[in-house]
Nucleic acid binder design. Structure first.
Lengths: 193, 193, 193, 193
DNA sequence: AATGAATGAGGATTCATTCAT
DNA sequence: GATGAATGAATCCTCATTCAT
C-alpha cells in the first residue's frame, strides 16, 4: 500500500498557496512554481493534481466562493426579520474570512479573470446571482417595487468597497465597510417612508 | 527626408491601441507586439518612444484619467449649486468617453495594476483624491459632518458600478448607473433632513 | 495473499498494450502511462517488470518478430518444393497476425527505432538475416547466381509493401500484397528461363 | 534600414539543419534547440520564422520533396521513349541529392510522421501520386492493363529500398538500388512479351 | 524616423523514473 | 504484487528588449 490520501491535502495546500501568492503579487501573474513552492511541493505535482494552471486558479476561486457562501448561510441561520437578514448578508461579505488582504486581492483579480475566462465568469455569475437573490428576498417586503434598484445598488456598493479595500496596503476595515452598506440600506428604507 | 513631428502622432496611436487591446483581451496580458501591430507600427518603435512596456500602460492610464478630469471640469463649468455640482461630477463618470467597453475594462485592469505597480498606484490615488475632494466640496454644505462618510460611500458605489459594467458583455448603460448614484445621493440628503 | 504467477500475465498485457498504443499513436511517442493504463496497471508496475521504457518497446518488438517467425515456420511445415516454400515465406509476411493496422504501424516504427537503438537494430538484423536466408535457400535452386539479387529485391519489396500499408487508413489487404510479391518472384523465375 | 533579407537565408539554414539533425539522431526526436544551434541561431529565431516545431519539419519535408521533383524533371528532360523515361524516373530516386544518409533517414521519419500528422500525410500523398502517375504514363504503352499492378510494385520496391538504405550505417549504394528496380522493370516487360 | 533581426530569460507542461508502503 | 506520491530534467514556446542599419 502506498502512502494514501495525500490528494485532498495537497489540493488544499495548493489552493491556499494560490490565494496567498495572488495576494502577495497583487495579480494573477503568479507562476505555478511559486505556488507549488509555497505549498511545499514541486510544480510537477501541482500539474499532476490540477492539470493546468487555470484549473488551480478556478479551484482557488471556488474555494473563496464556497467560504463566502458558508459565511452567508451561517449569518442567516439566526436571523428572521428582513432587516436582520439583510444585515447578516451584508456583514458576511465583510467578515474575517472574506475581507482580508489576500482574499480581497484575489477577488479583484478574479473579476479581471472573469473578463476573459468563461469558467471564471460562470463562477462569478453564480455569486452575483446568489447575492442578488439574497438581497431581493428581504428587500421586497421592505421596499416593494423599489427592491430591484436597491439590490443593484447595494451589490455594486459591496463590490466597490472590495475594490477599494484591495488598494489599501493594510488589512481592510471590514466593520467600517459593513457600516457603510448598512447606512445606505437604512437610507433606502427611510426614504421609502 | 525624415518625417518630422511624428512622435506625438505615434504616441497617441499607441496609447489608443493599448486601451483597445486591453479591452479586447480583458486583461493586461497584452504583448507589445499586439499593441504595436494595432497601432500600425513595429514593436521596436513602441519601445523607442516609451522605453518599456510599463510606460505604455502608464501613458494609457494617464490618458484615461486626463479624459475623465476634462469631463468633470466640463460638467462643473455651468453648475453652481452643490446638488447640481454633485450631479455633474457623478454624471461625468458615466458619460460617453469614460463609460464604454474598452475604457471600463482598462479601468478595472488599472485597478489591478495599481496593486503591484507604484506608479500606477500613484496615478490612481490622484484620481481618488480628486474625486473625493470634488464630492466633499459640495457634500459639506449639504451634509455637514456626515459628508466624509457620504463621499466614501459614493466613491465606492461609482467604482462598484464600474466593476460590474466591466463584466457585462455589451457597452454598459451609463445613464442607469448615474441614476443609481444620484438616487443614493438623494437618499443621503433626504435622510439628513 | 499475494497473487502468484502474475508476472507473465502482466508482461503479456503490457506488450500487447504497447503494440496497440503504438498503432493508435502512429509513432513511438507513447508514454509509459498510456501503455500501463491500457494494460490496466499502474505505470510503476510497468517499470517494475521491464525496468525502463526501451525494454518495453524491445519486448514488443521481440513479440512481433516471434510471431512472424512462428508464422513462417508454420507455413513451411507443409511445403517441399522451392517455389512452394517461397510462397509460404512470402505469404507468412502478409498473413492475419502480422499484416494488420497496429502491427504494421509498430513495424514501421521499429524500423525507425533501429536507427538509433542498438538493441532494436540487432533484433531487426536478425529478422532480415533470417528472411534473407529463407529466401536464398529456395531461390538458389531456381535462379542460381541470380539468387542473391533476387532475395534482396524480394525483401525490399516486402518492406516497401509494409511501409505503404502503414500509411493506409484501413487494415491493409494482405492477399493483394502477397500476390504482388509472388508476381515479382514469378517474373524473376520466368526471366531466368 | 535594418539588416534585410535574412529570412530566406535563415529558413534555408534551418531546413538544412533539420535534415542533418534528423539524420544524426535517426528520428524526429530532435529538439528545436539542436536544430537552431546547428543552424547557428537561437531557438527563438527558429520559432520566429516557423512558428512551431511541426512547421520546421514540414518545411524540411517540402524541401526534400521539391528536390526530388526537380531531379525527376531533370531526368525526364532528355528522355523520349517509355523505357528511357521510366529509367530516368527510377534513377532520379537514387541519385546523389536524394539517396544519401541524412536524406534517406529523414524520408523514413517522414513516413512515420505521416501516420499522425495530417499535413505530413498530405505531402507524402502528393509525392506518391506523382510517382505513380509518372510510372503509369510510361508503363501503359509497355504493359497495357498490367501497368497499374506494375506501378504499385515498382513504387513499393523503391520505398523498400529506401527503408533498407536507412538502416545501413554508411551512405547507401544508389546505383545498385537503381539497378534492382530496373531489373524488376525489365522482368515485367519481358514477362509481358 | 523606423524596422527587421536576433536573443536571453522565463514559464507551462510533460514524463520517465523512484520510493515508501 | 502493486500503486499512489512525488520530482528532476527536459522541451516548446513566448516575449520584452536591444541593435544595426
Amino acid at each position: 500500500m502506498p502512502k494514501l490520501g495525500m490528494e485532498p491535502i495537497r489540493r488544499a495546500a495548493l489552493v491556499k498557496a494560490t490565494i496567498d501568492e495572488i495576494g502577495r503579487a497583487g495579480s494573477l501573474d503568479v507562476t505555478v512554481s511559486q505556488i507549488a513552492r509555497r505549498a511545499g511541493v514541486s510544480s510537477a505535482l501541482a500539474h499532476h493534481y490540477f492539470g493546468a494552471k487555470e484549473q488551480i486558479f478556478l479551484a482557488a476561486m471556488r474555494h473563496i466562493l464556497t467560504g463566502y457562501a458558508a459565511a452567508v448561510r451561517a449569518g442567516l441561520a439566526g436571523a428572521r426579520a428582513p432587516r436582520a437578514r439583510l444585515e447578516a448578508v451584508i456583514r458576511a461579505s465583510f467578515q474575517g474570512g472574506q475581507f482580508q488582504g489576500d482574499v480581497v486581492s484575489a477577488w479583484l483579480n478574479f473579476y479581471v479573470a472573469a473578463q476573459h475566462s468563461s469558467p471564471a465568469r460562470r463562477l462569478l455569475t453564480v455569486y452575483q446571482k446568489r447575492l442578488r437573490s439574497n438581497l431581493l428576498h428581504d428587500l421586497r417586503p421592505l421596499l416593494g417595487v423599489r427592491a430591484d434598484e436597491a439590490a443593484e445598488t447595494l451589490a455594486a456598493l459591496i463590490d466597490g468597497l472590495y475594490i477599494r479595500a484591495a488598494l489599501g496596503r493594510d488589512d481592510p476595515d471590514g466593520a467600517a465597510s459593513a457600516r457603510r452598506v448598512l447606512a445606505a440600506l437604512d437610507n433606502m428604507i427611510g426614504a421609502g417612508a
